[in-house]
Design a protein around this nucleic acid. Structure first.
Lengths: 253, 253
DNA sequence: CGTGTTTATCGTCACCCAGACGACTATGAT
DNA sequence: ATCATAGTCGTCTGGGTGACGATAAACACG
C-alpha cells in the first residue's frame, strides 16, 4: 500500500475516543471505563481504541461504541426511529505530549444514547460505569485521592468537557435531544432531558407549547402513558425535522 | 519515544488541510493551490501538509497557513485586534481510500482572513489562487475538462463544503464575521461580509440596528471613512463579545 | 453650482415569539 | 374524599425582527 518512503513522514497512531452521554436520574452522565494497563492504570478514562488499518474513523467509533455498550448507531442522516444511538465526530486531539508512550492522535466522537438498562462492561475485563459529568469533570479538584475522585486519564477531561459543551449547544437548534429518549416518549420526558443536559429548570407550559408547535419536531403516536405519574401524557416519536427554527432558548445562568 | 511494539497498531500519516476563506469582490473565496506531484498532479487542492513529529495539530495548521499566505494567526481566545487570521479546527477526514498512496488522516482546519492584497504562492513553486467557493465546488459538474474546472483533489471538495458551512453557520451566533474585515471597518463593510458569505441581501437599516445595538460587538474608533463612497461611515473595531445573543438571523432561501 | 447617485443612519409600525403565570384535567397515593 | 403529581390549554406583555419611510453627507456629473 505504501510505495513511498515511510521516513518521509512521521508515523502516528490514530485512535478514536468516545464521549457517550445519557441522562440517568435527572443527571447528564457519561460512560467511563477503568484502565487496566499503564499508563494511568486503574484510572477512569473514556472508552476508545485504535483505528484499524482499513477502517473508517466513523466505523471505528461505531465499533467501539458497540463493544462498550451494545448500542447500534444511526448516522446523522437516519430517521432516528430505531433504538440506536446518535454518533458524530467531535474533534481531534493531537498534542505531542498527550500520550506518554508515543505520538497518538485521537479522533474523539460524541454519542448520545437513551438511558440504558445496565452499564455493560466491554468484551475485555475492564469495568465500566455511568457517572455524572459533573463528577467526572470535578475529579481531581478536591483533595481526595481515591480512584473515584481522580481526574480522567490523558486529556480525557478536556475531551469530555468539549463533548458536553457540544451536546449542550446542539440541542438548542436541533432535534438531537430526542436521541436521549426512548423511541416513544412524552413531552415531559423530553423536557427533563433538556433540564438535565442544561442543568436548569424549564417552564413545562412554555416548553410544551414550543415543542408541540414546531412542525415536524414531534409526531404523536396516539398512545399515552402514566409512567411518570400524574395525568396520562401523550406519546410522541421524533419527527423528520432535524433543525429547530427558531431554536430552543437556553436560559441564562 | 516508542517503547511499544510498532506492529501493535497500524501506522498512519497525519496531515493538516486548510480551508482558508476570505471575501473578495463581494464573493466568498477560498485559497487553492495547484498540485505539483502525483496523485492529482496539476489539479487544484486545499493547502496543507504533514504534521511534524513533535508538532501540535494547531501549530501545524498555523505553520502551513503562514507558509501559504504569510498570515499570522490569533487563536480563539485572542482579542481579534491584531491583523492575524482566525484559525480553528474543522473536522478530521480519514477514509481509508481518500489518498491512493497510503493511509492518511487529515485534520482539516478553517481559517478566516481579511481580503489580502495579493494571493501569494508558497515557499515552493506551487501556484496559488483565490477562487470563489461556488467555482471550486461546482467544478467537475459542468462538462468542461480544463484544469480550472476540474474538481478539487482528494476529498477536498467535501472538506471545503464543510468549512463553508461552518463559516456560514458560525457567523450567525458569533462575532466571527469580523475576522473577514480589516482591523477597522464600517457597518456596511461588515454587512457586505454577511451578504457574501450567505449569498443573500440584507436590509442595511435593520443590520445597522442589530450590530450597533448588540453590546460589546462593535466599538467605535471615532474615525470615519468614505472608502466605500457615499456618506462617511463610522469606523469600528471588533469588541470583546464573541457570542451574538440573540443571533443574527440568516434569511431563508 | 445644482442634481442625481450612493451610502449611512435614524425612526416607525406590525407581528411573532418567548417568558411569566393562571386555570383546568386526569391519574395515583393516602 | 382529599391531596399530590404531572400534563395541557390560555392569556398577557415585552423584546426583537422584518418591512419600509425619511433624512444626512459625501461624490460625480452636467
Amino acid at each position: 500500500m505504501s510505495p513511498y518512503d515511510p521516513s518521509a513522514f512521521p508515523p502516528f497512531a490514530v485512535t478514536v475516543d468516545l464521549v457517550v452521554l445519557t441522562v440517568r436520574h435527572h443527571a447528564l452522565c457519561a460512560l467511563a471505563v477503568r484502565r487496566g494497563e499503564q499508563p494511568f492504570q486503574g484510572r477512569w478514562a473514556l472508552p476508545g481504541g485504535f483505528v484499524r488499518a482499513d477502517e473508517d474513523l466513523t466505523s471505528a467509533a461505531a465499533r467501539e461504541l458497540g463493544e462498550e455498550t451494545g448500542l447500534c448507531v444511526h448516522g446523522p442522516e437516519a430517521p432516528a426511529q430505531d433504538n440506536g444511538a446518535h454518533l458524530e465526530q467531535l474533534a481531534t486531539y493531537g498534542d505531542p505530549e498527550r500520550d506518554p508512550r508515543m505520538r497518538v492522535v485521537s479522533v474523539a466522537h460524541l454519542a448520545l444514547a437513551p438511558d440504558l438498562p445496565a452499564p455493560r462492561a466491554g468484551g475485555d475485563a475492564r469495568s465500566a460505569r455511568w457517572a455524572p459529568v459533573e463528577t467526572l469533570l470535578a475529579a481531581g479538584a478536591g483533595g481526595r485521592e481515591d480512584e473515584q475522585a481522580a481526574p480522567l486519564a490523558f486529556d480525557h477531561a478536556q475531551i469530555l468537557a468539549d463533548g458536553v459543551e457540544r451536546a449542550r449547544s446542539k440541542i438548542e437548534y436541533s432535534s438531537l435531544a430526542t436521541a436521549f429518549c426512548p423511541p416513544e416518549f412524552t413531552v415531559g420526558e423530553l423536557r427533563r432531558v433538556y433540564e438535565a443536559v442544561w442543568g436548569v429548570a424549564l417552564d413545562p407550559r412554555n416548553f410544551h407549547r414550543k415543542v408541540t408547535g414546531t412542525p415536524g419536531f414531534l409526531v404523536p403516536t396516539g398512545g399515552t402513558t402514566t409512567r411518570q405519574g400524574g395525568r396520562p401524557a401523550q406519546l410522541f416519536r421524533a419527527g423528520g425535522a432535524t433543525l429547530l427554527n427558531p431554536p430552543m432558548l437556553r436560559p441564562e445562568v
